[in-house]
Design a binder for these strands. Structure first.
Lengths: 221, 221
DNA sequence: ACCTGAACACCGTTCAAGT
DNA sequence: ACCTGAACACCGTTCAAGT
């Protein structure tokens, strides 16, 4: 049976779940698809292009139509969709973070986010900057979640913690503890709400007027 | 002359500026140091450890004593120090982002940031979460800055922009334009101030009382 | 203690040749 | 059009042997 581009991408994502990004090799992926490694180059000019396509596939659905509502809720939904998409496959966040050329799903997700922030009252340029800031947060957080999920196998939690915890403030120790203890979803929500409030503050600063928020007392400066 | 661990790290950072992260190879780095590739394994157990050491060296100075002052200014200083440190070497942000085991400079920088946010009034756990969020922002932004600095050589700005700009909202086009046009330092400052205001909002929510800010009217909820 | 030289087990990528 | 088989030019890493 002949291989199609889409088959390669799907197979690569399946392979990712089984072997991880570090195990993903053109030869081994070929073998998993019952094909020689070199045959994959009929479908992608190089490995980088394959990874870009995988990243874009990962983000499918993130830019689906948003329910009407407050921009805060829409940002919340968008960010949670993206986190969920990245966590859906092993090393998903790392794959997306390594992307060079954004695919169409990445582009329309960015587009949607920018428009949500614009509808909140931000100028397009600033909406773009903060959209990227949001994506950095989601990517960074999910990368850390997935990295942490890998650790306990090879490293013994004891010596590791000792090394990270010497000559450091008690606040740091508590913070590190909570990083392991606290539900990642809760940590994520906390930073996300901080981001949203940060957006709101720039909003009040830039154009108090077209916002649909029930809040602004317009106490400028 | 014998090679010391510190010499290898310094040489590797010099090599990074000349050839970039993708060109950094144990063999080629060895040659640059007048040594066989395998000799580097007397100083580092593997390439990953070398990269971790480079990342930590990159962050040297970021956690230097902060001037007394408002926590907002201290966060500002810390973030700008980190950005400057990452931009000081080619692919610096990518090197740090790829770090697995944090070095001592990374740890004390985190410690300092956590304590700044704690002194602002945040509980240690939340201070830790937002510190990581800040680092994700700085890393993401600087990675993008350095990636953009590489592009113009191989890609012709025209077809690239056309591909990124079809079937997309006019806001997106403006946002993309401004990403190329606007001074990165200004974009960085904008997102940073949004982050700082986001922190302030969580502060008001968590413990209005020990803050040294001249601001809180304590309008809770 | 540090380094050489050579090897081992891989990589990504290319390409004639097959079907 | 898609795939095989084999090669090319590399990798990271190891290790006896030298100094």
């Amino acid at each position: 049976m002949l291989l199609r581009r889409a088959n390669v991408i799907d197979g690569a994502l399946k392979f990712l779940d089984a072997e991880g990004l570090d195990g993903l090799t053109m030869r081994k992926l070929g073998a998993a698809l019952n094909v020689q490694g070199g045959a994959l180059y009929r479908h992608f000019p190089n490995k980088e292009a394959l990874l870009d396509a995988m990243a874009d596939k990962l983000l499918e659905g993130v830019a689906d139509p948003l329910p009407d509502g407050h921009w805060r809720d829409q940002v919340h939904i968008l960010a949670n969709r993206m986190r969920k998409a990245l966590l859906a496959h092993r090393d998903g966040a790392r794959v997306v973070a390594g992307t060079y050329a954004p695919g169409s799903n990445t582009i329309i997700a960015t587009d949607v986010a920018i428009n949500v922030l614009c509808s909140a009252g931000l100028p397009p340029a600033q909406a773009g900057w903060l959209t990227f800031a949001l994506f950095y947060y989601v990517l960074g957080h999910t990368m850390e979640e997935q990295a942490q999920a890998q650790l306990p196998a090879d490293d013994d939690w004891q010596s590791r913690n000792a090394r990270l915890t010497t000559g450091v403030s008690p606040q740091y120790v508590v913070a590190l503890q909570s990083l392991i203890t606290t539900d990642p979803a809760q940590r994520f929500a906390y930073g996300l709400s901080a981001f949203i409030e940060g957006v709101a503050s720039q909003l009040a600063l830039a154009g108090p007027g077209e916002s649909a928020a029930p809040k602004p007392p317009t106490g400028d400066r």
